[in-house]
Structure formats: structure tokens, C-alpha cells
Amino acid sequence: MSTTPAHPAHRAHPAPPADPVNTAPPVESAPSTASASTPESSRAERVADAALALLAERGMRGLTHRAVDEAAGLPQGSTSNVARTRQALLELAVRRLAEREARVLALHELPDPRTGGLDSVVDALALATHRALTRNRELTLARYELALEATRRPELRTYFDAAGARFREQLGALVGALGSTTPERHVLSLVAWADGLMFSCVAGTFHTRVPGLEEVRAGLRELLEGMTGAGKPVV
């Protein structure tokens, strides 16, 4: 059962077609309150999930402690008990965002490029990127709101950068295993490509035209082949 209630103004987006690859990273779903976690951690997760939903729907100005209480279906004052200040609430949202996006990307479940080759990496990254554009669009919007706010709050930047560093480290290992001789530079190009695609299709000029899974896969293959030479026929 979702802990992030729908807001009346929220527009539902059509579900994308089923993923054709069974080994894809799992779709991130709204967390359930029925878990083995403590009541305190469950409440913190409800608060954080509601904060992310509000950021996606109303933007940074719509994020208040009272609004989070209402969105999470909690008694007034509950959010203040979990995160007393606005900074604490934003930090809680960033940590929760990192947890949920990690489930979407599931980089720890990617096949070993040394055995699965370029195709296995392209398939997994394409599926994760496509899900960020469709089923997990709300998380992507919340990330943009938090990223912009982090440019004005150095303390928040620290939390945001820590989550990004872990992701970049894993990507670096992937492109290195595919044959990249400059993985740090190639990770920058790969992240820039993915971020540009997601921003354009979620909030930019291509917001009415989300690419299909095959288009995303083709773009990633072109990029990774050019970077690493993997998948190209040997002459």
C-alpha cells in the first residue's frame, strides 16, 4: 500500500509498455508501511515519501511541514517531530530519494560486462533510464527540485553529492570493464547524456514525447560503443 497519497491536482501519467527483459532492475514502487522497520523509521519514511511527492507536484514552495503532515495522513506536528527544521526535512528527502532511486537503478544487480558484454549493460541501463522517464517520473521531478535547492544550501549539497558519488563510482567500474581507458571522463559524458535526456523529456522541450525503450537503448549503445569500442567488429 502506498504511503504517498495522491493529491487531487496530481495528473496520472499513462503506464509504459511492459519491459521485455525479465532480468531488468526492479520497478521502484512506493514503500509500504507494513514492514519490519521500527515505528520511528516507518514514520520517517512516510514523511520523506510525502515530501518527495509534494516536491514533484508543487515544487519547493509547496514543501512545508504542515503540507507534509496532510499529504502523509499524519497528525499535525508529526513532521516537525521527525525533522524539526526545513534543512532537516530536505536532508531527509535527499536520503530517501537516494534510497528509492538506488532501487530503480539497481546497479548492484547489473551483469558483469566481462561476461555479459556490452549488450547486457545497455539493456540494464536503458531499462533504468526509461523507468525514470515513465513509471518513476515523480522521483525524477523531485530530484530536480532538490538539486536546484542544493545549489543554494551547502549543507544539502553535501548529502546530494554523496549519493551521486556512489552512483558515479559504480558507473566508472562498468565502463572500465567495457574497455574505457578514461572512465572518469566517460562517466561524465554518460551521466550528462542521461540527465539531458531525462530533463528534456520530463521538464523540457520534449516533455510531450517520451522516447520508447528501444530509442533509449539505441542511444546508449551508440554512446558506449563510441567510448569503449565494445561491440564493434574487429577489422
Rank of each mutant, 00 (worst) to 15 (best):
residue 175 V to Q: 03
residue 81 N to P: 02
residue 141 L to F: 07
residue 217 R to E: 08
residue 42 S to A: 15
residue 77 G to K: 15
residue 57 E to C: 11
residue 140 T to K: 01
residue 198 M to Q: 07
residue 203 A to V: 10
residue 117 G to Y: 03
residue 69 D to Y: 12
residue 215 E to I: 00
residue 31 P to K: 02
residue 125 L to Y: 01
residue 63 L to P: 01
residue 6 A to W: 07
residue 2 S to I: 07
residue 189 S to Y: 07
residue 174 L to F: 14
residue 82 V to I: 15
residue 29 S to F: 01
residue 185 R to L: 15
residue 126 A to F: 14
residue 45 E to Q: 14
residue 118 L to A: 08
residue 169 E to Y: 15
residue 39 P to V: 06
residue 23 T to P: 09
residue 162 A to Y: 06
residue 34 A to S: 15
residue 72 A to F: 02
residue 184 E to A: 15
residue 182 T to F: 14
residue 194 A to F: 10
residue 228 T to G: 01
residue 24 A to H: 11
residue 81 N to E: 13
residue 212 G to L: 06
residue 8 P to D: 11
residue 89 L to T: 01
residue 72 A to L: 03
residue 66 R to G: 12
residue 199 F to L: 12
residue 114 R to P: 06
residue 193 W to M: 09
residue 75 P to N: 10
residue 106 A to I: 04
residue 176 G to F: 08
residue 82 V to R: 03
residue 125 L to H: 06
residue 102 A to S: 14
residue 9 A to L: 15
residue 86 R to C: 08
residue 68 V to R: 01
residue 2 S to A: 11
residue 203 A to H: 13
residue 228 T to K: 00
residue 6 A to L: 13
residue 146 L to S: 01
residue 70 E to N: 09
residue 33 T to R: 09
residue 136 N to M: 03
residue 55 L to C: 02
residue 76 Q to P: 10
residue 214 E to N: 13
residue 30 A to M: 15
residue 217 R to A: 00
residue 52 L to G: 03
residue 199 F to G: 02
residue 46 R to W: 01
residue 103 R to W: 06
residue 148 L to G: 14
residue 87 Q to C: 13
residue 139 L to N: 00
residue 34 A to V: 15
residue 26 P to M: 11
residue 113 P to G: 05
residue 77 G to C: 06
residue 28 E to G: 05
residue 44 A to D: 01
